[in-house]
Simulated scan of single mutants.
Amino acid sequence: MSAVLLERDDDGIVWFTINRQEKRNAINYEVMDALQETIRLVEENDKVKVLVLTGAGQQAFCSGGDLSEFHRLHTKEEAYQMLSKMGAILYSLLTISKPTVALLNGSAVGGGCELATACDFRYAKTGIKAGFIQGTLGITTGWGGATMLFEKLPYTHALDLLLKARRMPSEQLHEYGWIHSLISENKEIKEECRKLLEPYLAQSAPVLRAYKQAAVQKWKTEEFRGRFFAEIEQCAVLWESDEHEEAVRTFLNRS
């Protein structure tokens, strides 16, 4: 079974669905490569207007990196190779010249929240929870999530989400400004997402591209890229710590 489902609507939406329900839609190298290729295709295809990322099923949007695969990474160098690969993909997602949406059909934790933060908009079902829980694993955000969060949210809201390192209800995350629209859990989430996107889809692709290009210029600087990848390197340092090793071991034994 493919780890990713890809669809394109006639109205210009590309739906990228992580299809690993047995792993709560955790990201592995197959998902990384598929996302990288999808970003490239969306960037180059003038008929695509919006990219929507979501997860299969109703339980999880994305549970971050697949620790059952990444637990083999022990040294700073090994960790940085994986972290910088996904970080570069999220940087491409952040700066893509098309509007992007993270459609949170279920919970999002850790790297799943970093993935969602890279998108322009976050729509979420009521009743779900999401959180930057990296601190509970003895590490920090490792895919550029904190750098993006401080760009997109008020300082105290962003810092609070990172320091608490816990799951919060989507309603509270909406108040913080991280979630932009709440969708009733009784509604069909993809249809509701499509309704929210209708005003954007009514515009031409060149108009959407022009506005998005204007928006992301501030992130296409050496200063921003430097901060982005310095964050990733810091996570790699913490990755080889005893605290992280023990936290991962406890997580895998519990799973």
Score class of each variant (00 low, 15 high):
Ser184Lys: 10
Arg20His: 07
Asp33His: 12
Thr75Trp: 03
Thr141Asp: 12
Val48Gly: 01
Ala3Asp: 14
Ala88Ile: 02
Tyr80Met: 11
Gly110Glu: 06
Asn25Thr: 09
Lys125Cys: 09
Thr126Ile: 05
Arg24Trp: 15
Leu163Asp: 02
Pro206Leu: 00
Ile232Leu: 09
Phe228Ala: 05
Ser204Tyr: 03
Ile139Thr: 13
Leu5Ile: 04
Lys195Pro: 05
Ile27His: 07
Arg20Leu: 15
Ile183Asp: 00
Thr126Ala: 07
Gly55Tyr: 11
Val216Ala: 01
Arg40Phe: 05
Leu161Ile: 02
Glu175Asp: 15
Trp178Cys: 03
Tyr155Asn: 10
Asn28Ala: 14
Ala236Cys: 08
Glu69Gly: 08
Met86Leu: 13
Leu162Lys: 00
Lys220Ile: 01
Leu53Gln: 08
Thr38Glu: 12
Lys98Tyr: 08
Trp178Val: 08
Met32Pro: 04
Arg122Met: 15
Leu137Ile: 02
Gln59Phe: 04
Cys235Val: 11
Arg167Ile: 12
Ser181Cys: 11
Leu162Gly: 00
Ala56Pro: 04
Ala130Asn: 05
Phe16Arg: 00
Arg72Pro: 02
Lys164Arg: 13
Ala116Met: 09
Glu223Lys: 12
Gly111Val: 09
Asp160Val: 03
Ile139Val: 15
Val14Lys: 00
Cys113Val: 14
Glu222Arg: 11
His157Pro: 00
Val31Ser: 04
Met148Val: 01
Thr17Gly: 02
Phe224Val: 06
Leu6Phe: 01
Asp33Gly: 04
Lys98Asn: 12
Ser181Asp: 14
Lys129Arg: 12
Lys164Gly: 05
Thr136Asp: 06
Glu44Gly: 11
Gly127Met: 07
Asp9Gly: 07
Tyr176Leu: 04
Val31Met: 10
Trp239His: 13
Ser97Ile: 06
Leu163Ala: 12
Leu115Lys: 02
Ser2Cys: 01
Lys220Thr: 01
Leu51Met: 01
Gly55Leu: 10
Asn105Gln: 12
Ser255Thr: 08
Thr17Tyr: 04
Lys187His: 15
Gly177Asn: 04
Leu173Gly: 03
Leu73Gly: 03
Ile128Leu: 11
Glu233Trp: 14
Ser204Cys: 06
Asp33Ala: 11
Ile13Ala: 05
Gly110Thr: 09
Leu162His: 00
Gly87Ile: 01
Leu173Ala: 00
Lys125Gln: 12
Ser184His: 15
Glu188Val: 15
Lys125Gly: 08
Gly127Tyr: 08
Lys125Met: 14
Asn19Thr: 04
Ile96Asn: 02
Ala102Lys: 08
Glu175Thr: 13
Glu222Tyr: 04
Val237Trp: 09
Val52Ser: 09
Gly112Lys: 06
Gly144Leu: 02
Arg254Thr: 11
Ile133Lys: 10
Leu196Arg: 14
Thr250Trp: 05
Arg167Met: 14
Val42Ile: 09
Asn253Phe: 06
Ala26His: 09
Thr17Trp: 02
Met82Thr: 11
Glu245Phe: 08
Leu196Val: 02
Arg166Gly: 14
Glu43His: 09
Glu7Ser: 04
Val237Ile: 12
Ile183Phe: 00
Tyr91Met: 15
Ala116Tyr: 09
His174Met: 11
Leu73Met: 11
Leu182His: 06
Leu5Arg: 09
Met1Asn: 06
Ala205Asp: 06
Glu223Asp: 13
Glu37Thr: 12
Val48Met: 00
Leu196Ser: 10
Lys152Thr: 07
Pro206Gln: 00
Asp120Gly: 10
Glu7Asp: 05
Tyr123Val: 08
